[in-house]
Computed example of a mutant assay.
Amino acid sequence: MRRVNILGVEISAVNKETAIQYLLKNMDKARGRYICACNVHTTVTAHENLDYQAVQNNSFMTLPDGKPLSSVGIRRGYSEMGRVTGPDFMEQVIAATEKSDARHYFYGTTQENLNALLEYLKVNYPQLSIVGCEPSLFRPLTIQEETELCDRINESKADFVWVALGAPRQEKFCAKLSKNTNAVWIAVGGAFNVISGVIPRAPQWMQDHSLEWLYRWSKEPKRLFKRYAETNSKFIFYLIKEKVEKR
């Protein structure tokens, strides 16, 4: 799997099709490991925090969840790169494995939102094997709780563990616990709520033109303004700084 280094973060040079093909073809290698979906915000966070950067770089795959990342990759010669969002990747894997023996475990968000996801999956993927689901406790787990969670996952014989806790917590969570199981853990942020319809997704034309961020900002302007303004500015600054330093 080829990767492109963007501000110290090794982003997998994949697109929607090649990402899922690589995972399903290499499931034996993916077991006990984890997958991240990296965007501008997490890239800047990882650039500034070396511990979190190591988590991203030690993943089985770090998906380019964000047009700026795939655009940088393409400009650097990785022509195959394309945006791979958490919701898209999750639903693609689910669709591809619905009629197989693959088992899925869901961890994160609230019980109410988790119920909405399960209802959606039962209607749209009735043959999907769901072997476990539990909401986030919205606090760090104790060592005993971590052990018990891994035991439940192993007892369920899950192949995929989908984790929705929000970055950077979810990636650290997956990196710490995945090795204690025989499943691949996939950090997908708000994918549970997006796929179930709890959080409306941007119209397709906005997704196609990389304007999904603008749609999200219009829905939560107060919460997202500082994040977008600060991290996007830092991302551009760090890229320019990196380019100057390499001259």
Rank of each mutant, 00 (worst) to 15 (best):
E10N: 15
Y215T: 02
C38W: 07
V163L: 10
T45S: 12
A164V: 00
N193E: 15
N180H: 14
E134W: 00
S70M: 07
Y52G: 03
V72E: 12
S71W: 13
L117W: 03
L50S: 15
L118Q: 10
D28V: 03
A95W: 04
G86N: 09
T142I: 05
V14Y: 05
N26L: 09
V194G: 02
I11S: 02
V14R: 01
R227L: 04
A116T: 04
L7T: 07
L177M: 13
L211Q: 12
A37N: 11
F60V: 07
I199N: 11
Q21W: 04
H47S: 14
A116W: 05
V198C: 09
I6Q: 02
T97P: 04
V244Q: 12
Y215S: 04
T109F: 03
L7V: 04
W217L: 14
K246F: 01
A95P: 00
L214I: 03
Q204D: 13
R2I: 09
I143V: 12
L239H: 08
R2Q: 14
S71C: 04
T142M: 07
D159N: 13
D65L: 03
K122E: 15
S196W: 08
V14H: 03
L114W: 05
D88P: 03
Y228W: 07
R169V: 07
G86R: 05
